[in-house]
Amino acid sequence: MAENLVKKADGFEQPGQNIGRFEEIDKKVAELQAQIESLSRETPENKLSIIAFSGDLDKALASLIIATGAVAMGMDVVMFFTFWGTPLLRDGKKKVRGKDIMGKMFGKMLPKGAGKPKLSKMNMGGMGTAMMKSLMEKKNVASLEELLNLAGELGVRIFICEMSMDLMGFKREEMVDYPGLSYAGVATFLEEAKNSKVQLFI
């Protein structure tokens, strides 16, 4: 105790040295603050980012089950529908005009909405898919449309790849009414994915 006092007293006798010390500490604190800030910027959030690439019934089911399950686990969920996943978000009841010939062709050949995709395996000219769907109904497994509605209710955010839309000639007017549906590109996905603890490509 007495020793400490002596030390303190010594310190007061050399104010110049102390000011130098304080400056040093200030600098260190500022450095640490900057480091903490960059760390918290880099720390992933409790978030799941899914790229819904596949237009197959089975894979789309998987991504929507994981998405809705993740919300239940308390995660923030973002889905990016791109390429073959894009047509799953078309609304079968909406009609649009003014497509060019390629757009019309793609429009006809790709599934129009979440009720239309086929299984990736054992489709057997549609028979396999029909069997799977009736089995799902019998076993009370939610359909793709139901899961999509549920995802909307739960606040799963959905982005659609603008480039896929353009490539396949889809128009925004023919897409489903999904809460907060928006259109974006790769940078939007990467920004979300970078801050997500889990990222999936399905």
């Binding site: 089950i65 809705t68 399950g69 919300v71 686990m73 009370n140 939610a142 549920l150």
Partner: peptide, 14 residues
């Protein structure tokens, strides 16, 4: 009862 994955967890979380 009768609800398969992911419904039980989704519903209970709500």
């Amino acid at each position: 009862k009768g609800l398969p994955c992911p419904m039980p967890v989704v519903k209970v979380s709500k």
